[in-house]
Design a protein around this nucleic acid. Sequence first.
RNA 1: GGUUCCGUAGCUCAGUUGGUAGAGCAGUGGACUGAAAAUCCACGUGUCGUUGGUUCAAUUCCGACCGGAACCA
Length: 301
Amino acid sequence: MIRVLVVIGPTAVGKSQVGIQLAQQYNGEIISGDSIQVYRQLNIGSAKVSKEQQKMVVHHLIDTKDISENYHVAAFQNESRKIISELNKNAKLPIIVGGTGLYIKAALYDYQFNEEEKLDFKLESLTNEQLKFKLTNIDPQTAEIIHINNRKRLLRALQMAMSGNKRSDVLAKQAKEPIYDCLLIGLTCQRDILYQRIESRIDTMIKEGLFEEVDELYQNDHALFDYQALQAIGYREWRDYYQNKFDKEVIVNNIKLHTRQFAKRQYTWFNNQLPVKWFDINDDTFMSNIHKEVKEWLNNG
RNA sequence: GGUUCCGUAGCUCAGUUGGUAGAGCAGUGGACUGAAAAUCCACGUGUCGUUGGUUCAAUUCCGACCGGAACCA
């Protein structure tokens, strides 16, 4: 089994730095497990690793898309797996570093996506009740699981069912186990400390020119906020600024608020979806503990 | 100084024609298989400003006091 090292954790705990250290020590290359850092134009707000850091260690899946493109799990799974097997051929240790739980799990586990799905059944005009009713008829098992208010999921499940790939069937075929020999290192710290880190990280982003970054994109393209990529925290909030709803101070506070809420959701995912070994970054020995863990893992099997 | 209004959950406010109260936001927990930095779900006891009075019963009515706002002098 190919070995894959993974560094995860909520936003602003310091994953990038740890990833770089591990890559240097264990002859690895980094695969970014992040749904936003793939976009070339989103730099400051996505907390992308700097050019200097990218020179220290090879980083993959950063700056691979234009903001006008839509990115998604299936693409990430495909691309990351290709890189993993290539690195393995060259005797490099693949290290996934990122905070997008679904992407990382889809790469590591037996998630299956169909090659080409033509999903264009024009369901947008239906109400949630109608969607749920239709889904109950074709794929009752899935209909039971998805809450009626979760329109996005209802739509997706119905599209799948109508294209002949019932979600419940697809899931039933999967082994639900990792396809790699992976070690998941989780970085954490006390909640209030994390929230402080988030606060100061965003203040730093503003100083580094987050607004200017957004403003330049907006001046070039007033349809900016319609792009999927612009749903990213740190970016989408500025729409309210251009619509004269809030001033900059309120926008910045909203970015902080949304980032905190995001970090909490990340914890929920990591704690319940993946077998993570957690290390507290405020523990003086956390880095050496991680090394111990990694070495043990590399020496086994 | 006078008049009027306000003081209820961390915040913004409803409400009880007198039977000790509930929304939104925040917060916490959870779900998650092609938007995931997305989307969705669950969870609400708080001396109803303080203190007297009326009453079987007061957060609700009356008085005083404290804090805040507006207006008049």
